[in-house]
Design a binder for these strands. Structure first.
Length: 784
RNA sequence: GAGCCCGUGGUCUAGCGGUUAUGACGCCAGCCUUACACGCUGGAUAUCCCCGGUUCGAAUCCGGGCGGGCUCACCA
């Protein structure tokens, strides 16, 4: 017998059972069509947040659905381990350590975090293949990342070069834009006197006067009447240096004086201009971020130099005025130090050259929702520089190259995996010594080959059969990084073929107030906290309901409460069915009543709708249909309609009802299984002959059966009439079980259905007349 | 500023050319009907953001506003 209530103990029982049996282990290719899922490896922070709960539920729905559709589902779990956040945590705990020891601690820490997260994921009922896990810190993973870079190097896609990059002087590392965040602050806009070709006074506006030593040009808008005549002429800066005046449409006439100086580099726009107009690049910051080559201000930090140089200009009468200006500066998200642009020798990947090819390859992938591709297009269109793939950090994949300090030649490492500690010495053709690269790779370099990793590239036999992966599910906010870089590396760089057939985008979870969840706002909800009050199956239903594709949705307690009560409904209805299936042998009855056929047709419609929804990853649509079908048609109506037959003496009629109860509930459970597997598994084993070792999670997905369209429509007026009688009982303050005499105008129903009405609504007799009901008196007396 | 998404009862949501405009939560009334009071039966609540247009007919299509969200660029 089903227990009185459904809850966590039952869920845990099945989680352990699935694990014990290895239910979801991929046992290699077989006669079934494979379906592989390129699941996001979460960053190993140790905590599972609501975003994870939502997106991993999404992936799990797909995996479970596809299994039931008969695919050989390959659903491995990866872990993204390397990067700044881990280093920061470990550094905080152990302080600065020698390179190798530090890496070891990082590895230990990651392993602990993985254990924590895995435990949480199991509690949510996720069904990845725990036998096929990968971690980006593994030697094997390193080897493949490095190999993929060698391949790209041979195609001249990866190179060492000198380019402006984001630079954190505190951490002494190049940074990607994604490692930065914005800080609002107030600064001063300084108006400073320069000298024109005729010795006339020209005013430029700048927030970074200390960079004037790196000034390489003065610019104005081509249609600015004030300055038009300066084009190509020489201007003398306040420091006495001569630079050219250049017209450029990106200059804002209205801003400051309409005249500006270009320094290498004060901001991003300077870089654009420097490259556009092929200006010389002067570097006036040394490796510690202090000024050099200025003479008087050498060794000062920019901030101090700024004060000094302003003082100097003031004294010389070259400072015209200062205005307060609100400004947004980029700071390194880990240490909050303002980021500078610096010309630096780094490793790059040539994404600028391949923008169009990336966009083209993205078109070969099916996007869910379709508009998702626009995120990638927009990003590709805005890419201006190559991707800096090197980081001056420790916990990352080593860059498998050598370079010559003398002539800057580069060469691949001879054997992989390559580690600095064990790198053999090499000599350069120029006679110089080759240095093994000390930097490590950006984490996106690691994660942009996951489709290759899971396929088993390059050594596992038959890896080509698992590439492209069937599906890449991921968050919409990392289209510009993860999806973009994966197409570029796995697709263009290594295989020349798209990395996946389809991509499914999910949005983010907001706090119930509609704002982002953040620790500082104190509005964070944790899935593990929710699990104390709600079953995992309810949390998963919440995910299905929230998952309007690629759309952010606030977390909703209403949804999860509703999900919980729905589970309760499913449970109790199943208990009722279980009680009434006693003595039923499972065989098909001689004939079905019209009401039975109505139920079967309603089931057909639910199967069709859910199948269609699941095929398009519209889990909320499927879930909604399951609510409608089960709660209203099956429980509220069919169960009630059938009760008198269950308690009655007509054995044939009872058997027909039993058959329909059995079929409808079983099919419904299968439709619900991908979303809420635990409850379905338990009921399956209790009611539907689930034997030891069986699982509903591999049951074939239901198909619509014999159609009863005509009966379905015939029953509608009957349902309306019953609803009217129920209403009448309600407003007469009668219990629904009360026996009545019905007065009604002529009722247009077939005798069979009219009989049903009489039995269902407990009507003793029907008189013709104005619509009304009367309780059968003595019944009331009896109950008193 | 640019691109994308969105604006439907108090709240959230479905619908995307003709519906008495879906459902959930909440609210109100009645009902302990042998699965479920975490329930059942009903009820009230909507100028479908605004203004134009297309159409016999628009929440639904088009144009323009206004408002919100996300991503990007934010300026010397």
């Amino acid at each position: 017998m089903l227990a009185k209530r459904f809850g966590t103990e039952i869920e845990e029982k099945w989680q352990e059972e699935w694990d014990r049996r290895g239910t979801y282990t991929f046992n290699g290719l077989d006669e079934r069509e494979p379906y592989s899922i390129d699941t996001p490896p979460p960053f190993t922070s140790g905590e599972l947040h609501m975003g994870h709960a939502l997106s991993y539920s999404y992936f799990d729905f797909v995996a479970r659905y596809k299994r039931m559709r008969g695919y050989n589902v390959f659903y491995p779990q990866g872990w993204d381990t390397q990067g700044f956040p881990t280093e920061t945590k470990v550094e905080k705990k152990y302080g600065r350590l020698p390179r190798e020891e530090f890496r070891k601690k990082c590895e230990e820490w990651s392993a602990q975090m993985i254990d924590k997260m895995k435990e949480s994921m199991i509690k949510l009922g996720f069904s990845p293949d725990w036998k096929h896990q990968y971690r980006t810190l593994d030697k094997e993973y390193h080897r493949k990342v490095q190999l993929s870079l060698h391949i790209m190097y041979d195609k001249e896609m990866v190179y060492r070069g000198e380019h402006p990059v984001f630079w954190c002087y505190k951490c002494r590392s190049a940074l990607a834009k994604s490692d930065t965040e914005d800080l609002e602050r107030e600064t001063l806009l300084n108006h400073i006197k320069f000298t024109g070709p005729e010795g006339e006074e020209l005013i430029i506006a700048t927030t970074r006067p200390e960079l004037m030593y790196a000034c390489v040009a003065v610019m104005f808008h081509p249609e600015d009447e004030r300055y038009k005549h300066l084009e190509g002429k020489e201007i003398t800066t306040a420091l006495g240096k001569k630079v050219k005046a250049i017209a450029d449409k990106d200059v804002d006439k209205e801003y400051g004086s309409g005249l500006l100086m270009v320094c290498t580099f004060g901001d991003k726009q300077d870089i654009v201009w420097a490259y556009r107009h092929k200006l010389p690049i002067l570097s006036i910051l040394d490796e510690n971020g202090k000024l050099k080559g200025t003479g008087e201000f050498d060794g000062l930090k920019p901030k101090d130099a700024k004060e000094k140089i302003i003082e100097k200009f003031k004294e010389e009468g070259k400072l015209v005025k200062q205005e307060k200006l609100p400004q947004v500066v980029k700071v390194h998200d880990r240490c909050k130090t303002p980021v500078e642009y610096a010309l630096s020798r780094q490793w790059f990947a040539d994404i600028t050259k391949h923008k169009e090819e990336i966009k083209q390859m993205a078109r070969k992938v099916k996007w869910f929702p379709e508009f998702g591709i626009s995120y990638l297009d927009n990003w590709a269109d805005s890419v201006e520089w190559d991707w800096v793939i090197s980081r001056q950090r420790h916990f990352g994949t080593p860059i498998p190259f050598y370079y010559c300090e003398k002539c800057n030649a580069t060469e691949k490492a001879d054997s992989l995996p390559f580690y600095l500690e064990s790198a053999p010495e090499k000599e350069c053709r120029c006679g110089g010594k080759m240095k093994p690269e000390e930097s490590v790779l950006d984490c996106w370099v690691d994660s942009s080959i996951t489709p290759l990793i899971i396929a088993g590239w390059p050594d596992r036999k038959g890896w080509e059969k698992l590439y492209p992966a069937s599906l890449r599910p991921q968050g919409v906010e990392i289209v510009r990084t993860w999806a973009f870089y994966t197409i570029y590396r796995s697709g263009l760089g290594v295989t020349g073929e798209k990395p996946w057939d389809s991509i499914l985008l999910n949005g983010n979870v907001l706090a119930p107030d509609g704002r982002k969840m953040s620790k500082s706002l104190g509005n964070v909800i944790s899935p593990m906290e929710l699990l104390k009050e709600y079953p995992a199956d309810a949390l998963r239903q919440w995910a299905a309901l929230s998952g309007a594709m690629a759309k952010d949705r606030p977390f909703s307690y209403e949804d999860i409460k509703f999900a919980k009560s729905f589970l309760n409904k499913v449970w109790n209805a199943s208990r009722f069915v279980q009680g009434n299936l006693e003595g039923y042998d499972g065989s098909k009855p001689q004939k079905l009543g019209t009401v039975d056929k109505w139920m079967m047709e309603s089931l057909n419609l639910a199967i069709e709708e859910c199948t269609d929804a699941m095929e398009g990853f519209e889990f909320n649509r499927s879930m909604r249909k399951l609510h409608d079908f089960f709660w209203h048609d099956f429980c509220d109506d069919y169960l009630e309609y059938v009760k008198y037959r269950m308690y009655g003496s007509d054995a044939e009629s009872k058997k027909a009802a039993q058959y329909v109860l059995h079929e409808a509930l079983f099919s419904f459970l299968k439709l619900l299984t991908p979303i809420s597997p635990h409850i379905c598994e338990e009921i399956y084993h209790e009611l539907f002959g689930g034997k030891e070792g069986n699982t509903i999670t591999f049951a074939p997905w239901p198909k619509a059966g014999e159609r009863f369209r005509e009966e379905y429509e015939k029953v509608e007026p009957m349902r309306t009439l019953i609803s009217k009688i129920r209403q009448e009982k309600s407003s007469s303050q009668l219990s629904q079980g009360a026996e009545i005499v019905l007065t009604s105008p002529r009722i247009e129903l077939e005798p069979e259905l009219l009989d049903e009405v009489k039995n269902i609504a407990r009507i003793k007799e029907i008189n013709e007349g104005e619509f009304g009901i009367k309780a059968v008196e003595d019944k009331k007396e009896e109950s008193k």
